[in-house]
């Protein structure tokens, strides 16, 4: 799974081949995925860090997460600490 996105209050899971509709809220998914490699990167998106290729800062402004399938997703600065936590946990 690459990421979960909230589009008009509907959640979608994006996998390698397909897109699935999910009957849940972002908060519920966030609770379910606590202490996993899934992490929230913006108000509308939760990514699987296993597929994260890099975080880019575009011209000292907007932040983007580049996935290993080439997709780019906007990252809110507020959630950078949460992404760091996932990698810190993997270290320990």
């Amino acid at each position: 799974m690459y990421y979960i996105e909230n589009v008009d209050r509907k959640l979608f899971i994006y996998t390698i081949k397909d897109v699935y509709r999910l009957e849940a809220s972002m908060q519920e998914i966030e609770k379910m995925t606590a202490d996993t490699d899934l992490v929230r990167i913006s108000r509308t998106c939760i990514i699987n860090t296993d597929h994260l290729k890099e975080i880019k800062q575009v011209k000292n402004s907007r932040l983007e997460a580049v996935l290993d399938n080439g997709e780019m997703l906007i990252v809110s600065r507020k959630y950078l600490q949460d992404i760091k936590k996932v990698f810190r946990r993997d270290l320990s």
Binding site: E54, K56, Q57, L80, Q81, K84, F87, D90
Partner: peptide, 16 residues
Amino acid sequence: DSFRIKKDIEFINKQI
């Protein structure tokens, strides 16, 4: 804030 963000990105990319 800018410095902190830069450091956070460097840390994450290094871990990746």
